[in-house]
């Protein structure tokens, strides 16, 4: 399995955020997207997930276990927001996502209890999500990555608001995912605690933005 991005450019509103970004990642590899605030890390990840239309360029997932039209179908996206309902219990949230996501061909997600145990919060899955602290909520959002199998993880600032122990736990999750042949793409300021990662440094597009007007 290979993820190939070619000549990506993206625009937000009238502003060109970045242009001509190409990279290639194979299964079992991770890509760390680095750069200052506003350099377009989040925008790049949203383009990869298919949530934002690219101005130019293509993203393809080659030799995947099932043909995909958009990379988003084969990917988990962990954005700034946790995508969990405060009114529902953690278990209800995760059960819903597990059923709604379904597994991508070639893997299977773990059950909800196991996922909650893996992120180190076993025993509080029956609480409403809104009762948890910010750090716990973030961990539960990570448990969402485990309940359904997706070969590609797209992670936007995954460890913001987490303490060192949780960061280490998350590094373990990513390592395990890579060892199953998965791909991870993470935008972050902090070192993820992973060794031997490839890096993509976003500089931000500083030239004059072309505009149709």
């Amino acid at each position: 399995m290979r993820l190939v991005a070619e000549g990506l450019s993206a625009r937000r509103g009238e502003d060109l955020i970045f242009r001509d970004i190409s990279f290639e990642i194979a299964g079992g590899e991770a890509l760390l997207v680095k750069g200052a605030n506003g350099s377009g890390k989040s925008t790049l990840l949203r383009v990869l997930a298919g949530l934002l239309a690219a101005e130019a360029g293509t993203v393809r997932l080659l030799a995947a276990t099932q043909p995909v039209e958009r990379l988003g179908e084969a990917a988990h996206y962990l954005g700034h927001r946790n995508a969990m309902k405060r009114e529902l219990t953690v278990e209800e949230n995760l059960t819903f996502w597990k059923a709604f996501f379904g597994d991508f061909a070639g893997g299977a997600g773990v059950c909800v209890d196991e996922a909650v145990d893996t992120v180190g919060l076993g025993g509080i899955a029956h609480l409403p999500f809104g009762y948890l602290s910010a750090g716990q909520q973030r961990r539960m959002a990570m448990a969402k990555l485990l309940v359904a199998w997706r070969p590609v993880w797209i992670l936007d600032e995954p460890t913001a608001a987490l303490d060192v122990a949780a960061e280490r736990m998350f590094a373990g999750l990513v390592t395990a995912h890579l060892s199953r042949g998965g791909i991870a793409i993470a935008a972050t300021h902090q070192p993820l605690g992973l060794e031997g990662l490839r890096e993509l440094r976003m500089t931000g597009f500083t030239g004059a933005a072309e505009t149709v007007w």
Partner: peptide, 20 residues
């Protein structure tokens, strides 16, 4: 409307170059 949008683009440029 086109002229209005051009002005908006110019203003945004001005804001950015001031920041630089």
């Amino acid at each position: 409307e086109i002229l209005r949008r051009r002005i908006a683009v110019l203003r945004r440029h001005a804001a950015r170059s001031a920041g630089e």
